[in-house]
């Protein structure tokens, strides 16, 4: 049996899940998260600061990606 590199997903669903998860992770890391804080600080969503809602939304979408990967049997 030939053993290929395991760092890169091979299935289509695996590639999609990995790519989306990593992009979402970038959205909650510097410098983007600091840009969001700096420029959208005065916006409030549903009574909470934009940064709080923004981070929460990305986190829950990331969890959604993990659940989607589970559903697709990645």
């Amino acid at each position: 049996m030939s053993i290929r590199n395991h760092y890169f997903p091979r299935t289509s669903a695996g590639k999609k899940a990995t790519l989306i998860f990593l992009i979402l992770m970038l959205l909650v890391q510097p410098p983007i998260v600091f840009w969001v804080d700096e420029n959208l600080r005065n916006i409030w969503i549903s009574g909470t600061p934009f940064l709080y809602s923004y981070l929460a939304t990305v986190y829950f979408v990331q969890i959604g990606v993990l659940i989607w990967a589970l559903w697709k049997k990645v």
Partner: peptide, 19 residues
């Protein structure tokens, strides 16, 4: 302050690492 809501980044990553 609100910076500690950064905790979400590592808790979500824990899930991905486990997976």
């Amino acid at each position: 302050g609100i910076g500690f809501w950064q905790a979400g980044t590592w808790t979500v990553l824990v899930g991905a690492i486990t997976y």
